[in-house]
Design a protein around this nucleic acid. Structure first.
Lengths: 135, 135
DNA sequence: TGATCTGTACTAATAAACTAGTACGATATT
DNA sequence: AATATCGTACTAGTTTATTAGTACAGATCA
């Protein structure tokens, strides 16, 4: 029986051929897990070391991912305890939230349109996803 | 009367403090213009040199932006003639298109959720945008 | 309080990204 | 064919990003 490496029930995997930096792959996988409900507020992430061992990378690379998420408010960390999905989001005014969302969506639409998709394609597919994705 | 620098009616501007590379800012501004209808299929982009002069950067930096868009299929270029918004998109199967859109949207949702937005926030705001954005 | 768990600081080596200088080749126009 | 207008190739310098090695510091628990 081998010592199991704790990954919080998540299947972290690195694509070493994608060219995407390891720490960003980690962030994206956490974001995805939050987005579809596999991680909830207060959920504990694997420790820096255990995930580093699991992914066979340096602990600092995992730490960097966690630190960036900490800055963004996605997680909060406590030495000696661990890293957890944030309980509450930063408090912004409705106006600020709206502006941020607007910028995010416009940027996304611009990107999508460069692939030939229009706003109706997006909304159409979003409706399909609504059943799969639990937020 | 000063020689006017042709920018195709678009107001290209570089934010030198954002940290975002110049060539990516150019790409984004073209994508945005395509997304909201300021640029249509066949529209001519400013020449590499004229835009380089306008933005006060090296022609190769503009060329890099154009070249990347060429690879993505957003524009097509012809030496001696100029660079134009692509007439037609690459031919993909419906299945391929669906997979690409799905990946794009899921990635976006993950990103949006890291800001605290959920799928309903997104769809709600999209409906607001439908009137502004013409694709 | 000692052992062991947690994240972190500091350094450095390497790789990749970014931009510019300069010269070239292809196309269009006259 | 000459000339002006287009994008491109090649090179190189500089900066930034990425990752790892190693050692440290805070928190928990037996």
């Amino acid at each position: 029986m081998t010592a199991e490496r704790y990954t919080g029930g998540l299947d972290f995997i690195l694509d070493q051929t994608s060219g995407v930096p390891y720490y960003r792959q980690v962030i994206k996988q956490v974001e995805m897990a939050v987005a579809d409900g596999r991680l909830n507020k207060g959920s504990k992430l694997p420790t820096v070391r255990s995930l580093a061992v699991h992914l066979q990378i340096n602990p600092n690379t995992v730490a960097r991912a966690y630190n960036e998420m900490e800055i963004r408010g996605i997680v909060n960390t406590q030495q000696g305890t661990g890293t957890f999905i944030s309980e509450k989001k930063i408090d912004l005014t409705d106006e600020e939230r709206k502006d941020i969302l607007d910028a995010l969506i416009r940027s996304f639409l611009a990107n999508a349109s460069s692939y030939g998709f229009n706003i109706d394609d997006v909304t159409g597919h979003l409706n399909t996803l609504k059943e799969d994705v639990k937020l």
